[in-house]
Structure formats: structure tokens, C-alpha cells
Write a protein that binds this DNA or RNA. Sequence first.
DNA 1: GATGAATGAGCGTTCATTCAT
DNA 2: GATGAATGAACGCTCATTCAT
Lengths: 195, 195, 195, 195
Amino acid sequence: MTTEQDRGEARCNQVLDAAATCFRQRGFHGASMAELARAAGMSVGHIYHYFENKEAIIAAIVERDVAEILALLDSLHDEEDILQALIREAGNEMEESPCSDEALQVEILAEASRNPKVAVTVHEGDRRARTRLAETIASGRARRGLPPLADLEARTEIIIALFEGLMLRRIRHPKAVDDATIAVLRSTLHTLLET
Amino acid sequence: MTTEQDRGEARCNQVLDAAATCFRQRGFHGASMAELARAAGMSVGHIYHYFENKEAIIAAIVERDVAEILALLDSLHDEEDILQALIREAGNEMEESPCSDEALQVEILAEASRNPKVAVTVHEGDRRARTRLAETIASGRARRGLPPLADLEARTEIIIALFEGLMLRRIRHPKAVDDATIAVLRSTLHTLLET
Amino acid sequence: MTTEQDRGEARCNQVLDAAATCFRQRGFHGASMAELARAAGMSVGHIYHYFENKEAIIAAIVERDVAEILALLDSLHDEEDILQALIREAGNEMEESPCSDEALQVEILAEASRNPKVAVTVHEGDRRARTRLAETIASGRARRGLPPLADLEARTEIIIALFEGLMLRRIRHPKAVDDATIAVLRSTLHTLLET
Amino acid sequence: MTTEQDRGEARCNQVLDAAATCFRQRGFHGASMAELARAAGMSVGHIYHYFENKEAIIAAIVERDVAEILALLDSLHDEEDILQALIREAGNEMEESPCSDEALQVEILAEASRNPKVAVTVHEGDRRARTRLAETIASGRARRGLPPLADLEARTEIIIALFEGLMLRRIRHPKAVDDATIAVLRSTLHTLLET
DNA sequence: GATGAATGAGCGTTCATTCAT
DNA sequence: GATGAATGAACGCTCATTCAT
């Protein structure tokens, strides 16, 4: 039973990985279910055993992304200086520029703009991530003896906007993110988090 | 002759306005040429007299947006304090929340991620807008007697990222932009521009 | 203009003729739009210029059938003895066994059982045909000096049931309709109409 | 062994009951094997242990219906006046309007129009039911001292047509069968059976 | 006996684009 | 300039059927 469950979950992740790649390369509407199926190594029809339709696949990708972010934020609580860790991680993420994630994120945003079901998933995921980031910042400040922030939520918004905005900049300006930009990013985060 | 040219230009703008509305509401792939034609008050076939194909329409929208941004930046040079004007305008733009422009911008980004022709237009448009903003900032600082910035391009990048990022935040969190957030935005811009 | 209208109408009828043939031979769900298109001598997509979808095609067939029945009933009013003409026509229709119409009629009934839009068209068409038949019977009796019928609607129902039932009998029993059966049909109609 | 056979038969009937319900509600092509399986409380694959394919299921439904009709006709032989019993039962069946059986019957007719295997089952079943009804009528007349009918088969055809036709009328005219119609039905059957 | 994962052809429908008028 | 009829490939999705377990 457990084996079967695992198998099903593995198959699901196979689809999500394939879909993330396809959506990145061809867009949500540009990637056909036939392409997803080929990339996932299964038949078109079988994908529908795991996902009700195409929008359910992108919703699942969103949820997986949120879980990853929450895990990253949680891991920061083990660090001595949470705020420093946040600033460090933000820069690292941008530096790595792992696999043109901006292309996938923009597809998610585009679909959320139009598709109410995807919008709900995105809103809820953002609420959870946003709340956790605010908590992480508050913890970090407390641990450092800094006073609580009256505008914690607003600063959190700006930090997320800065981070997502910089990632999406790569679409309009592929060389946007260089060492100098990351230095300014870090200094801006310093102002927002530590003052 | 001039009248004919004007008429053609007006017809073009009719198409661009209609297309901007349609793309905003239904997405680039979601809006059909038939919808565009209906919204523009002309036949499907006639749109092809003005635009080679659908991607040429979104490219033209991008160029019109860039022209608008350049005009706005130019207008700031008439102000006494350019930097203050920049900060003021940034806040105003975000406050107005004109007509869910984020939905159109995300369509442009999505299409630029995938479509090389649109990408070229977007890259070039961004280069011009970015350069002009950097010049505007330099002028503003000079006029205020502030020293030239070694990291001018990087700061410009961060400012654009902040601005675009905040606009796109509305997709994931419709209430992202409130008075508190704009206050933090203005204070961050102050740090980036005036120190 | 008139020519264009005619052309459009002719194209529509081209589709309806092709659809009637295809539905007869393969059933409503068995006949694909590709088959219809081939039979109608036009592209799949073009059929959608004339009909919103597949169910609109069968609805249009129903309406055309109703118009034909109404025309037939109207033509009977020119006869000297309408009741005799009705009995004669009923027998003739069954004798001719024109083109396995039962197969198309059963498809219409099957679709009307399930599809609310088709059901509405069928109900409305039946109401018109039923009312006209009752009027025709009343006229015929009046012209013959027979007294008005208290159970006119009920007799009309039974007559239609008899007629449709006999047509559909050919599906369960292809030899159902022979001279002897038609003789009994005529004698039953005599009892229902002329007594 | 007998127990096992009974179990198998019960499972078969489970499938047939479920299928009758599904076909009634969604049509033969509209009802998927997955729906049948769910309604029958067993897996999709297992249905294929009992029935070769989907058409075998509808054929089995036809055979069960025929058996039921034969049983009903046989039971009439115990009545004192078989003809009166026939007329009474016909009216009762129509009055009860059990469970929109017309929707299932029309699916059977539609499938028989197209599917040769189903057609064979339907033809054979009809032959048996038709023959038995003719025998029943002959018995009834003999028991009443009425002379044998030269057109027995033709009258039988008309009676069946009347009965099936009236049932199918409900599709085109849901209120077709009311007390007045049943009265005319009974009087018509009287003429056909007792004169 | 019993399951349900897996297939892939085929469905109705849409759409950017062309071109005769 | 301006129209909209016409195309046909491609889309998301469904489904009867099979078969390893």
C-alpha cells in the first residue's frame, strides 16, 4: 500500500517536473498536453488520472513552490543571525540564477491573472509565504534586540516585490542581475531589515 | 496625404487600444484576432493591413509604452527637484492603480520569454527606458549637488525592479499596495536616490 | 446582398443535408464533425460559421422537418375530403419507406432525451406540428359535417403515436410495415378520424 | 458450485441494473464504463469478466427486457378474459410511467440502428415477443368465442406500434400521456382486439 | 476473482492567417 | 482600403479496452 502510494506520488512529481520544464520553455498555453506527456514519460490520458486538468497542474506547481519557500524560511531559524541569513540567501538565490525560473514564474502570474482557480491557489500560497516571511523577520529582529516594526507587513511586501521584481527583470534585461546589482540589493535589504 | 497618414495612424492606435484591453482581459493567447477586430471596430482581415501578425501587435504595444515612459521621464526635467519628482511620481503611479496594468505587463513578459521577436523589442525598449532613467537620476543628483554614483546602473536596476515588482505583486496579493507599502517604497527610493 | 444571403442559406442546407445523412448512417455521436465537413464539401472550421456547435445542427434539422410537416398538412386543406387525404397520405408515407428516416428520427429522440437545448427545439416543434394536425382534423370533420370531438387532442396524440411508432417498428422488425399492416393502420385511422 | 453460479449471476444483474440506469440518464455513448463500474460497485476491468464489451451489455439488457415481457404475457393466460387483461395492462403500464423507460428504449433503438450485433439481438427478441403476443391474442379471442383473425400479425404490429409509439411520445411531448389519451388508447385496443 | 493503472486514437472546437471580392 | 468566408492543424480532454498484479 505504502509502495503504491509512493509510486503514485512519484508519478505525480514526474508530471510536475515535466510540466515545469515545458511551461518554462513553451509557456502554459504553448505547451500541449501531448508535450507534457512525452516529457513525463507517460500517456496523455494517464496524466488525467493524477490531475483533473491543465490548470490543476500549474496549481500543484505553485503549491510545491510555496512548500519549498516555507521550508527555506524555516531552515533560517536554525541560523544564529536570521536577518543576515535572509540577506545572504536572497543574494545567493539571485546569483545562482538556477534555471531561468523567471520564465515559469511569469507563466504562473499570467495564468493567475486570468484563471480564477489558479488565482485562488496563488493568493493562498502567497498569503502563507508572506506571513511566514514576516514572522521570520520579526524573529530575526527580536533575536538581535531590535525593536518590533510598526510597518512589518509593508516592509515585507517591499522585500518580496524587490526579490520578485529583480528575478523578472531578467526577462526585459538578461544582464540585469550582476555583482553590482546584488550589492545594491543587499544594502537595500539591510536598510529594510536591520534599521 | 497627411490626412491619410493620420487616418492610418488613428486606425493603428484603434487596434493597439483594443488589443491592450483584450490582452489585459483575456491574455495574449486567450484573446483571438476576432475579438481584437470586434473591439477595434474593424474586420479581422483589415488588422493584417496594419500589422504583420499577432506578435507585431504586442511589439507595437511595447513600443508605445516605452514612448510613454520616456515622455514621462523627460517631463520630469522641467521640475525643480527631479529626484523628489521621481519619488512622487513613483508613488502616484502605484496609488492610482489605473486599470490593472499588471495583467498586460505580465502578458508582455510571458510573450517575451518565449517569442524571440517580441524579446528583441522588449530588450531594446528596456534599454532605452533604463538608460533614460539613469540619465534622469544623474541629472537630478547633479542639480542637487550630490556626488555622481559609481553604482548608478545597479541602483537604476533595483529601482526598476522595485517598481515592476510592486506592480506585479497585485497579482499574487491584490491588497499588496496600500498606504503603508507606498510609504516604505518612498523611503526606499529616498535611500537609493538621495544618498 | 440577396445573392450572398442565398449563398449562405445554400451552404447551411448543404451542411444540414450532409448532417442528416451522416447522423442516419453513424448516429449523432458516431458521426464526427470531420465526417460532416467532408460530406458537406467544406472545412470543419467553416461549419462553425453557420452553426454554433453540433447540437445546433441537429436542432436545425428538427426545425426543417417540422416546416416540412406543416407544409404537408397545409397542402391537405386544398383537398376536397381532408380526412380521406390524411389517411391516404399516412399510408403513402409508410409505404414509400423513403430513406430509412427512422434512423434519423431515433437519433433526434435520443439526443432530445439527454440534451436540454435539443429537447426545447423538439418540444416546440412538436407543439406546432401537433396543434396543426388537430386543427386539420377539426377542419376535416367540420367539412364532412361530423360533430366536433371532445377528445380531439387525445385522438391526435394517439394518431401521432401510431404513426411514429410504426415508423420506429422498422428498427426492431424491418418487415413490420407491409400491405396488411398498412390496411390495419388505415382502418384504425378511419375509426379515430371519422367516427 | 450453484452458489458460485448464483453469485456470478447476481454480479451480472448488478451490472445490468447499473447500466440501465446509466444509459437512461446519460445515453449509451454518454455513459462511460467508469460510470457503469461506479454505479455497479465494481471495478472497470471486472465488468469485462462478465461482458465482452459495451455492446454486449446493452444486448443483455434487451434480452432481460424480452424475458420480462414474455413473463407478463404468460401471466395473462391465468386471467379469465385475456383480451380485457391485455387492454387493462396496456393502460396500466402507460399510466404508471415508471421511470422514464422511454430514454432507455430510445438508446436501444438508436444502437440497434447502427450496431449489427445489437440489431440481431433486438430483432430476435422482438420476434419472440411479437409471436407470443399474437398467440396471446389468438388465445384470448378463442376463449371468448371470437373468430380467428386473418390479419392477426398485422393487428399485432399495430398494437405494438401504438404502445411503443405512445411511450416515445413522452420525449417529444412530456404531457402526451394523460387520462384522455389512455382512454383513446383503450378504445383503440378494444377495436383491434375484440372486433 | 478482482483491481485500476495505462494506453492512444479520436472527439468537438478554436484560431491565426489568407485571399477573392 | 476593407471585408469576412474559408482553411485545417492543433488544442484539451475522454474513453473503451487491456493486462500486470
